[in-house]
Amino acid sequence: MSDSPSSPTHQPAPNQSLNPADPQSPKPLGFNDIEAARILGMKPSTLRRWRSQGIGPVYRKIGRNVQYTQADLQEYHDRQAVGR
Rank of each mutant, 00 (worst) to 15 (best):
N19E: 09
D33S: 12
P12G: 01
A21N: 11
S52K: 15
Q53L: 15
Q80P: 00
Q11S: 02
P26M: 03
R51F: 13
G56I: 10
Q11L: 10
N32I: 06
D3F: 12
N65K: 14
Q67M: 15
L40K: 12
P5M: 08
N19M: 01
N15Y: 09
K61W: 06
R49D: 03
P14N: 02
N65G: 02
D3Q: 14
A21E: 10
A81I: 02
S52I: 04
P5G: 07
N19D: 14
V82A: 02
G54A: 09
P8L: 11
S7H: 08
Q70I: 06
Q67D: 05
K27C: 03
A81D: 03
V58A: 14
Q24W: 05
A36N: 06
R38Y: 08
G83A: 02
G56D: 13
P57Q: 11
T46Y: 10
T46L: 15
S4E: 15
G63E: 12
G54S: 04
N65F: 13
P57T: 09
P12Y: 09
F31E: 04
K43N: 14
P23Y: 04
H77C: 01
F31H: 13
R60D: 09
A71D: 13
H10F: 15
E35C: 05
L18F: 07
D33V: 04
Q74H: 06
E75F: 04
V66L: 03
V82D: 01
P14C: 00
I55G: 01
N19S: 07
P23C: 04
P8I: 09
P14D: 01
